[in-house]
Amino acid sequence: MNTVIIKYPGGNVQSVTFALQRLGLSPVISDQHEVIQAADRVIFPGVGEAATAMRHLRERRLDELIPRLRQPVLGICLGMQLMCRHSEERDTPGLSIFDTEVVRFTGKSIKVPHMGWNQLYNTKDWLKTGIEGIFAYFVHSYFVPLNSNTVAQTTYDLPFSAALRKQNFFAVQFHPEKSGEAGGQILQRFLQQEFQP
């Protein structure tokens, strides 16, 4: 399977590459439009800050390309947040694939960032079987509230979206590449997804 990881700086591109290699794939890392468009599966990772990442995407016109992709696309962490309409993080407009805001954790009794292993529940759609109750590794200060595209929840102060799905776009707030065997299972699950537009 021809899997392409969208390249951008400061991201966790290396970790995602290693995780896919452990699953027996040979992913390609690229920011070239034709390479990304020709992929069977596209992974859009991300660690870092929203405004800087969006600027980088715009400079390469990836902000125009990503929403038009037709093959299964998986956004991870910041990648998922950038796929939303807008982020409170430095008032950053996103790719508007998911019509939702990204907001900051503000609870007085919690530590920010939300860092560590937390449980997935109310799993459905592509995460319907075998995923309920597993622990995944999270590191983030902003979150996507529950919405009509939510397919898994996690609670930190309040329930939020741990995973999303809309047509060929899949997204997870946690880091499957860092979530042990369970994470490998979720990456595998994404790779098995078919979407016929």
Partner: peptide, 8 residues
């Protein structure tokens, strides 16, 4: 380590 480890 990164190549072989699936936790942070």
């Amino acid at each position: 380590v990164a190549r072989h480890l699936d936790i942070p």
